[in-house]
Amino acid sequence: MKQNTTSYKLKQYLMFAGPGTILFLAVVIVPFVYGLYLTLTSWDGTSLSKPFVGFENFANAFKDTTYWQAMGRTMIYSIFAVVFINIVAFALAYLVTSGVKGQNFFRAGFFVPNLIGGIVLGYIWQFVFNRAFVAIGNAISSGTTVSLLSTPNGAMFCLILVSVWQYAGYMMLIYVAGFMSVSKDVQEAAMIDGCTPSQAMKNVTIPLMRSSFVQCIFLSITRCFVVYDVNLSLTKGEPFGSSVMAAMHVYNQAFTYKNYGLGQAEAVILFLVCAIVGVTQVMVGKRGEVEA
């Protein structure tokens, strides 16, 4: 049979999947492999030679205290952001599936921040924090109010707040799908068996929605770990570099200070940390999954 020869299959493959495969390999796999090679060189970004330095970049990355400060900051930011994103998203999903009037309108409204890119959102919030909130503060208290963005802790708080606001609507949609997938029958059965509504929620609905939680937490962790756009436009790492997140540090290390090898090594470490945390979370989460 002609159809089973490898050359026929290869021709079919190239005809249909050739462009997709080539583009994928060209922008993802080739840079990934080449990037691993770059971590072993001390390239400055312009010269033709890429001196081979072995694992020196990784050694320097581990010694780079500003990098690990940024990493620690990213961890703290991610923990708060992930927790609050999911609490807010779950609450919103509960409210917009409870059958109140205009729930589709609200659902659409909460999603709006996701339509707009992080750069624009960051600038809008910068205005809100620096002008609107300051004006409100001045109106209700006698002293002069300073912007939250001007103190290190305040800037972190602002970043977390904006991230929660930005992603809650998106995660809400996943939780809404989770609520829809839990059939009304099991909830009613629980109520007939004597559960109060809150007990039914805690013991029946939430365990059955476990996969939604696993997914939302995974998505929010992976997004928060590499936050860049909002970080750049909202705080730009200020005040005094106290809100530089890991992704921004990597960008600066490579493109501003021209330490491409070191920057790439730090990016790889960031990727490994992010992957380990994400995969562990999914594995732990999946283990306890139940079905109705």
């Binding site: 994928f24 993802v28 080739v30 080449y34 990037g35 860049y228 490579a254 491409y260």
Partner: peptide, 21 residues
Amino acid sequence: SLMIASMVIPFQVLMVPLVSV
């Protein structure tokens, strides 16, 4: 499988080699 596995790679890991290539 290569495509599925690649989905976990954040853009930050690819940006430097991408610009360099």
